[in-house]
């Protein structure tokens, strides 16, 4: 027994090292797809508050481009107002405006922190869009802040369709350029042209159908391959993202319960 204690004491530094590293690896693997804890992430009230103050300061420097974006959005809204009758059919969708207070665009796993949380009715799994197109999906919800996984995160899979013929495909991101994503599952018999519009499919309750995602930049069909390699120019300009809307689908819970029932 004494020998054992002696050995433990002799290697105590190494033991501390191993224990700390094992703990860190457990945290990484548990946390790998997205931040799970709203305390130990930017959804934390203190860190979120600090980022919000900072982004408020930064906002003064981009007033001009923000104004332009808001003007464009106003115009877009006026257009939609004229088509209000068609919108009436979709009363189950509710939009909550929010502001991105912190985000990264140049990592493989990018996240956006927004200044709305459970106190504003935000729930995990809700979609996030802006006036340009799809932004991402809410994954971690704190009381006043939430973390969104944008489509420019290598863990994202977004169900999309071609606007021209409703062909379904999956949008993924390779971690390299925040302006471009990749489209998977497009079989070789499809005719894909640069300029084809990609929109959300409406197959999941996260996003309603037809929100713009991007435009096909180029497509390559390798010799003998049965699927295309397609590069999509994203509509959303993530580097200048500031104002977003959280899509709240009144039927989301019901639809998800139905899906779980199938598994």
């Amino acid at each position: 027994m004494q020998n054992l204690i002696k050995i433990l004491l002799r290697y105590s530094n190494f033991l501390v090292f191993i224990i700390l590293e094992v703990a860190a690896f457990m945290l990484i693997s548990r946390n790998n797809a997205y931040p799970r804890s709203s305390m130990l992430s930017t959804a934390n009230a203190l860190i979120g508050w600090q980022h919000e103050r900072l982004s408020n300061i930064g906002a003064y420097f981009s007033l001009r481009s923000q104004n332009e974006q808001l003007a464009a959005e106003n115009a877009d809204l006026r257009n939609q107002l004229s088509a209000i009758d068609s919108l009436r059919n979709d009363e189950s969708m509710h939009y909550t405006p929010a502001k991105a207070v912190q985000m990264t665009t140049n990592k493989m796993h990018n996240y956006i922190t927004i200044n709305k949380g459970s106190s504003d009715g935000i729930q995990r799994g809700q979609g996030v869009r802006n006036s340009e197109g799809v932004v991402g999906i809410v994954r971690t919800v704190g009381h006043d802040y939430s973390i969104v996984i944008p489509i420019i995160n290598t863990h994202t899979n977004l169900s999309c369709r071609f606007a021209k013929n409703d062909y379904i495909a999956t949008l993924q991101w390779d971690g390299k350029d925040s302006r471009f994503a990749q489209l998977a599952d497009v079989a070789a018999h499809m005719v894909v042209c640069p300029g084809d519009t990609i929109v959300t499919s409406g197959l999941s309750p996260v996003f309603p159908e037809g929100i713009p995602v991007g435009i096909v930049e180029n497509s390559v069909l390798k010799e003998g391959a049965s699927y295309y390699t397609i590069r999509v120019r994203l509509n959303t300009d993530f580097k200048r993202l500031k104002y977003v809307e959280v899509v709240q689908n009144a039927h989301q819970e019901e639809l998800e319960e139905l899906n779980h029932g199938l598994d």
Partner: peptide
């Protein structure tokens, strides 16, 4: 090493990467 873990944890909280900076700092 414990100090390293604490420094790593604070960095992880700031950039949503729980565990990664702890492991590297330790």
């Amino acid at each position: 090493m414990l100090l390293g873990a604490a420094v790593g944890l604070i960095m992880d909280i700031c950039c949503n990467s729980l565990g990664i900076h702890i492991a590297a700092c330790v």
